[in-house]
Write a protein that binds this DNA or RNA. Structure first.
Length: 378
RNA sequence: GCGAAUAUGGUGAAGUGGUUAACACGGUGGAUUGUGGCUCCAUUAUGCUAGGGUUCGACUCCCUAUAUUCGCC
């Protein structure tokens, strides 16, 4: 019996946006959804209750980081990642493929796997499709990612072809190695950059395997917004309707709306929590850099339309002060707000799809947020 | 009152007789996308206490004033 069930509840009449529901062993997830990132078994700065309060139904953990510290065996001993970190809703684990390419220097990619140096102590490490699965099995996440190569941008057609062939072979090996199919769902990752033929080929090959869902990888690596959308246009038509689609690493409001419009169900991104730690908030009227002098005497909440804990009790002037004074409450409050802002955005999106007015919703959001369709992000 | 030392941006300060006054903090603005948790980038003194003088040229040498600090009466 499959661990992950996707139900397509409704498709928007005027776009490819879709309303759905994913059921995992730990929870039901309404889609389209946003998943906060908790790389090292914690959504940075927040407690379980605070994350829950934002409306998040699923969060991410990271294979690479948890493998190195504290070690997947230790987490298994603790009773699995859910128990270890006190999160009883769903968890998705990334395979570590991205980290190997974003963090590690001196990597050596071979058919068997990737040899690279530890990003902190320089020791030699080796990660393969089978090991990534073994780690993810130990962690016990609801949704697992295959170990893939995230090719750089830009990459030549020739390089991309070879890389994707290898990613496909790795995906097959990972699927074979996955021993807990009844409790954990494994996703395949579509690569191919902005080459239509390679994206299509990758979809065709990976859909031959019965993955629980499909991820679009290789985006948010520095490419312009139009190309990110092209990568979706070149992939989504070739993916099955009865499986969830996950756009990896995308979390700016504009890009989320573009993805939903094309038929994406799941998003994750470090953006809301990272910019929060650096003092920037997402609001319905655009982005606010709270350390800016103009907020010194602004005694209003971050966003009048937000119902989060931060907006309920605190003002911009207070947040400005906390940042200036380098107080750790600031990253916490802004992280709570930013995540809830995106969770609320997803709620709005789901409601709009239900009522067949997604495109109007998107246009209104763009207008208010202060960007047009050509803007990269904010 | 006498003697001595020091006077460089918001702060701590480096500095040389010769075109753009080091660096750090702070200030201001920006970045951040499958997270290396206080990061990165840009910008921030047309001026070196004031007034004279020496010199081709002085923030740098000399004189005076002022301020601060220390010591002695």
């Amino acid at each position: 019996m499959a661990a992950i069930k996707y139900e397509l509840l409704k498709k928007d009449k005027n776009s490819n946006a879709r309303l759905g529901k994913i059921t995992t062993p730990h929870s039901v997830i309404d889609t389209p959804c946003f998943m906060p990132v908790g790389t090292q078994a914690t959504v940075k700065a927040l407690s379980k209750e605070e994350v829950e309060e934002t409306g998040a139904q699923i969060i991410l953990g990271n294979t690479y980081h948890l493998w190195l510290q504290p070690g997947h065996k230790l987490i298994e001993k603790a009773g699995g990642l859910h128990k270890f970190m006190n999160w009883d809703k769903s968890i998705l684990t990334d395979s570590g493929g991205f980290q190997v390419f974003s963090l590690a220097k001196m990597r050596d990619i071979k058919e068997e796997g990737v040899t690279f140096k530890h990003h902190k102590n320089g020791s030699k490490l080796f990660l393969s499709p089978e090991l990534a699965i073994e780690i993810e099995n130990s962690l016990g996440s609801d949704i697992m990612m295959s170990f893939d190569e995230c090719p750089p941008y830009p990459a030549t057609h020739e390089y991309m072809e070879k890389s994707v062939e290898r990613t496909i072979r790795w995906a097959k090996r990972g699927y074979e190695a996955h021993k807990k199919k009844d409790t954990q769902g494994l996703f395949g990752i579509i690569q191919g950059g902005i080459y239509p033929d390679i994206r299509k080929y990758c979809c065709e090959e990976l859909t031959k395997i019965d993955f629980a869902g499909y991820s679009i990888g290789g985006v948010s690596v520095g490419e312009p917004k139009e190309e990110q959308n092209l990568a979706l246009d070149y992939s989504l038509p070739y993916l099955p309707l009865d499986k969830p689609r996950y756009l990896m690493g995308v979390g700016s409001p504009g890009a989320i709306l573009d993805g939903v419009e094309r038929g994406i169900d799941m998003f994750d991104c470090v953006l809301p929590t990272r910019i929060a730690r650096h003092g920037t908030a997402m609001t319905s009227r655009g982005r606010l850099i709270l350390k800016n002098a103009c907020f010194e005497e602004d005694f209003t909440p971050l966003d009048k339309e937000c119902d989060c804990y931060c907006c309920k009790y605190y003002t911009k002037a207070y947040l400005h002060h906390l940042i200036k004074a380098d107080e750790m409450l600031a990253p916490r409050l802004i992280s709570i707000h930013n995540i809830q802002f995106l969770e609320n955005l997803m709620k709005g999106i789901r409601k709009a799809i239900k009522e067949d007015r997604f495109l109007e919703f998107k246009a209104a959001f763009y207008e208010k947020y202060g960007l047009d369709n050509n803007d990269k992000d904010f």
